[in-house]
């Protein structure tokens, strides 16, 4: 299957830098800000965006992680995923500005599940969605606020986000299905 590199390590770094500034701009600063990465690669991206904001603003930015497996609506269809990962959020989300960070936005079902899960942790003042790649193909009325790269894809395509913490290198690759 042909693989195209959409972003290399330096391009990802530039995208994250811009996304970090946009987060601060959209939130009007860093007060009450909470970055929540969606397991698994969203967690690494949230970590990096957080570090970039901390470097630029000189203030600590709290991070959380969220595993949405138990809030999925397709347990019947695909069966349980082998292992559910860790969820770690502050005791209450009341009054916070929560920025959801994920690697790829596609159908929107992950984000739907994340929004449901947040509701069980409190009532954030505002929730923003920040994704490295928006590949289109939404099945729900959900749109991102901050995007690293937007592109149109076919249903058979795969968009792989690789991060060095888990995959040994940084890249965004498009794997095209051969007809």
């Amino acid at each position: 299957m042909p693989t195209t590199t959409l972003l290399d390590a330096r391009a990802i770094q530039r995208a994250l830098q811009r996304m970090a500034s946009e987060v601060v701009e959209r939130c009007g600063g860093t007060a009450d800000l909470l970055l929540v990465g969606i397991q698994r690669r969203g967690v690494e991206l949230a970590e990096r965006i957080g570090a970039l904001i901390e470097g630029a603003e000189g203030t600590a930015v709290p991070r959380g992680k969220l595993d949405i497996t138990l809030y999925r609506d397709d347990l019947q269809a695909i069966g349980p995923r082998p292992v559910v990962s860790e969820t770690r959020l502050p005791p209450s989300l009341d009054g916070r500005t929560v920025v959801i960070v994920d690697d790829v936005l596609y159908t929107g079902r992950t984000i739907r599940a994340a929004l449901d899960e947040f509701a069980d942790f409190g009532r954030p003042r505002r929730i923003l969605l920040c994704v490295l790649v928006d590949r289109g193909g939404r099945e729900l009325p959900i749109q991102p606020d901050i995007v690293g790269l937007a592109l149109g894809t076919q249903p058979g395509d795969r968009v792989d986000v690789l991060v060095r913490e888990l995959d040994g290198r940084d890249a965004v690759e498009l794997v095209r299905e051969v007809a």
Binding site: Y71, V83, T87, P91, E117
Partner: peptide, 21 residues
């Protein structure tokens, strides 16, 4: 045993409930 690990945390949440079942 590995699947039980994340379920420990569910019982520590303010709302001790997930919609999985």
């Amino acid at each position: 045993l590995d699947t039980a690990e994340p379920f420990k945390e569910v019982s520590e949440r303010p709302i001790k409930k997930v919609p999985a079942l």
